[in-house]
């Protein structure tokens, strides 16, 4: 089961690739479709392997990534 999950708000994304370059799991890529503003947004290609490490969100200049992590119930 995946340990993390991210949501990319595609309308904010400018396809700069910084998230792709820092993802330690190498599960981000630039898609081939265009968003409303004419940029090719980043997408996650294998959510199952996401660890919720947040590195993509920390480097993202356009603040388009929301990160969730799976934690044992008692830690909440």
């Amino acid at each position: 089961m995946a340990r993390g999950r991210i949501e990319i708000d595609e309308q904010y994304c400018k396809g700069c690739r910084l998230c792709v370059s820092v993802c330690p799991q190498e599960i981000l890529a630039i898609s081939s479709r265009l968003n409303e503003r004419g940029y090719m947004p980043a997408e996650i290609i294998d959510m199952e392997r996401c660890t919720g490490c947040s590195m993509c969100a920390v480097i993202c200049p356009d603040v388009c990534i929301t990160v969730y992590r799976q934690v044992p119930l008692r830690q909440t």
Binding site: S54, T66, V67, Y68, R69
Partner: peptide
């Protein structure tokens, strides 16, 4: 054990 999803960045 049971796991829950926690928001870590928004």
């Amino acid at each position: 054990g049971k796991v829950v999803e926690k928001l870590v960045y928004e």
